[in-house]
Simulated scan of single mutants.
Amino acid sequence: MRGTESVRKTFDQELAALKQTLLRMVDLAERALDDSVTALKEQNLLLARVVIDSDVEINRLDEEINNWVIGLIARQQPVATDLRKVITALKISTDVERVGDLAVNIAKCTLRIGDEPLIKPIVDIPKMAAIVQDMLNKAFDAYDLEDPKLALAIAETDGRVDRLYEERIRELMQIMALSPRRVNQITQLAFICRSLERVGDHAVNMSESIIYLTN
């Protein structure tokens, strides 16, 4: 009996440590996304480079979590709810790593725009980013609290993000028709909008993983 209790305690401790590592990765990805949008608004090329450099640590944590999960399954052979918790951590880390990559994409687009005068004030993209960041925050809270209701609310918001994405693309195409010489900047802004839309998709993926965990 004591042996069983000891194994259970060890597994619970490892699972808690795994979750804390994932939440640390989450913090880095959130910061990278926020900084990438700030770099765009302010045309802060130094901050854009910081975002790109910071992705190394996000990738390192993702690899650490992957190896950790493989080792945990091999050592503990979890089943039922325990196995779901481990698999959910792995799924979410994959989505978080992609959020980090998308933040890097935004930063690279900002570098490509450089200090070129902007075609219009950067107002609508940060509004879209704020909605996406709220979706991410809710996804991370839902994971931390294992709250399926909060997870369901995330998917409902994604339609709004999709509509905003379509509106921004239409607007950018209209501007391109009037200012064809600004094609580089318009293309980069379109890529940024696409990256933000994809972040929303990853937040939805996380919500689906949380629902899987709690069912």
Rank of each mutant, 00 (worst) to 15 (best):
F191K: 14
S207H: 06
Q185I: 12
V161K: 02
R194V: 00
Y165H: 15
E208I: 01
E166G: 11
E156M: 11
L178C: 00
R194Q: 11
N205T: 03
M173A: 05
R181E: 15
R170L: 11
V199R: 03
N184W: 01
E167M: 12
I175N: 03
S209I: 02
C193L: 06
I175A: 01
V183M: 13
P180S: 04
A190I: 15
R160G: 02
I169F: 12
G200R: 02
V161C: 05
L164H: 05
E197G: 09
Q185T: 13
Y165G: 03
T157S: 12
M176A: 06
R198A: 09
I186G: 04
R182T: 00
R163F: 03
E166V: 06
S207Q: 04
E171Q: 13
D162C: 09
R163N: 10
Q185G: 12
S195W: 08
H202R: 13
M176F: 09
S195Q: 05
Q188E: 14
L196I: 13
V199N: 03
F191N: 14
L172F: 13
Q188L: 05
N184Q: 13
R181T: 15
V204P: 04
N205Y: 05
R182M: 12
L189T: 10
G159N: 11
S195I: 08
E167C: 02
S179W: 02
L172N: 11
C193F: 09
T187Y: 13
E197V: 10
N205E: 01
V161D: 04
L196S: 10
R160M: 04
N205F: 01
V199S: 01
M206V: 15
L196W: 07
R181G: 14
V204K: 12
L172E: 01
M173V: 01
Y165Q: 09
H202F: 11
S207D: 06
F191D: 06
V199H: 02
V204N: 08
R194G: 04
V183G: 00
S195A: 15
P180M: 07
L164M: 15
T157Y: 02
L164W: 11
E167V: 05
V161W: 02
V199Y: 03
V161A: 02
S207R: 03
E167S: 09
V199D: 01
Q174F: 02
N184G: 01
A177N: 04
E167D: 15
Y165R: 04
R181S: 15
E208K: 06
M206G: 05
G200Q: 03
E171N: 09
E208D: 12
E208R: 07
S207K: 03
L164V: 00
V204D: 09
A190Y: 07
A177T: 09
E167Q: 14
N184P: 02
V161M: 03
L172I: 14
S179R: 15
A177G: 00
V161T: 07
L164G: 08
L164Q: 13
R194H: 10
A190Q: 13
R181L: 14
